[in-house]
Amino acid sequence: MRTALAIGDAGGVGPELAAKLLAHPEMQGRDFVVIGDARLLEMGKTHAGVAFDLPVVAASEVARGLPAGRVMVDLANCGPEAITKGSSNPAAGAASLQNFAAALRLAQAGIADAAMFTPFNKHSMRLARPDYVDEIGFIDRVLGATRSGREFNVLEEVWNARVTSHIPLRKVADTLSVERILASIKLTHEVMEGAGKPNPRIGVAALNPHAGDGRNFGEEDDDIIEPAVRAAAAEGLAVKGPIPSDTVFVRAIRGEFDAVLTMYHDQGQIAMKLMGFDRGVTLIAGYGFPICTPAHGTAYDIAGQGKADLGATLAAARLAESLAKLNPPRGASVALGADWATGAVETETALAD
């Protein structure tokens, strides 16, 4: 079992968290392919106050096979002198994108069983690639996916899935449809069953205050969300809703639901981060292998100070490994091309999210 670990934004705590993860006692004996600039990992080790050795290979050597155990694939794409700690930077953004694409391709090729990354900074990534939308759009292009995946936020006590994600709040209501919500309920059910949670109980959050209050505060809950929930229940899924969003998470953490499906990004993120900021994991599912990252950001305010909390990164590594064991790859792997680590990713288009 091997995880491809992409080093995240070098202006933040990405290198430090990668170093802390690799040095953690629980991670000893677990195989990683670490992807990024070897100089940044050394910087991360210094910030973290840890020491360990990794065999280092160039990207050109990977197609011929990697040594067993842990290894660093040195892309030599961003030295410490190219970044400024605590701020966005196009060099850091470009390296993050290249590291992420390389990790995805290693998993797609079957060389790794799961992919994970320490936190990215979207502003840095857009400085390097102005068409960058979000991780899902980028993954779609790198892998040539025929179906977009979805983000889940994961705590031990509850999961959170969303119908829409990285779009302006003013567009959310117009984006919702019975078909889209039903598909999101089904995907939540599918992913949670694949994570070893049979027949998961899903609470579906309302969009409007008091679930619309009998159409006093909008019609979406009655005309869109409720029919989608009814259709999912008719297919045998354990689903309830729409439930007012100010109580649905209370009911979940009291044990009524295994997952909450929210209508937009912050409707779930606020609750999840309040419950477990230092434990939360973002899981990107739907691509044939798990992709995990800590749910928090790059923490520019403490970059280079050795203060980054490892909790969420450690949880991400655990989840990636456990999901990969539960769902071994099926079918043929995609062969690595000669430019597997440097090949261009086609221009993104905004997702209909």
Rank of each mutant, 00 (worst) to 15 (best):
F249V: 05
G137W: 01
E156R: 11
A109N: 04
D131V: 03
D113C: 03
L127E: 15
A4K: 14
H166F: 00
V191A: 12
E16K: 02
L40V: 04
V229C: 06
G212Y: 02
G241L: 08
N89F: 04
G144D: 09
R2C: 01
Q108K: 10
K186Q: 13
L17K: 09
R251E: 15
A58K: 13
T349A: 12
T247D: 00
M192A: 12
D339F: 02
I167H: 07
V334S: 12
H296L: 01
L261I: 02
Q108H: 00
G343V: 11
G11A: 15
A10K: 07
L169K: 07
V154Y: 13
P130S: 13
F217V: 09
A233F: 01
V73K: 02
E219F: 02
N216R: 14
A76S: 12
A48T: 08
H24N: 15
L40H: 11
F257T: 11
D9R: 04
P198M: 01
E42F: 00
H123Y: 07
G255S: 02
G203R: 07
T282C: 15
A299I: 02
D37E: 12
S124R: 05
K240C: 03
A295K: 01
A183N: 13
P130F: 02
P227T: 12
L97N: 11
M272N: 06
D174T: 05
T342E: 15
E26M: 02
R129F: 05
S60I: 03
P227M: 08
M192W: 06
H123F: 08
A10P: 02
K122S: 14
F52Q: 14
V50Y: 04
I202W: 07
K325N: 12
A101C: 05
L155T: 09
G49W: 11
F217Y: 15
R147K: 14
M272W: 05
D309W: 04
A59D: 15
V57F: 09
A232E: 08
L41R: 13
I302Q: 05
T175S: 14
T313Y: 01
D301W: 00
V73W: 00
P290F: 01
E321F: 06
D74A: 05
A234Q: 12
T347N: 11
C292T: 15
A145C: 03
A316H: 08
N208D: 08
G110Y: 06
V73F: 00
S322M: 10
L5C: 08
E26C: 01
K85E: 15
G36Q: 10
I35W: 06
G337V: 08
C292F: 01
L207P: 06
L155C: 14
F100S: 09
A109V: 02
S87W: 09
L75F: 03
M72Q: 11
A299R: 00
R126W: 10
D266E: 13
L314V: 06
T282S: 15
L169C: 10
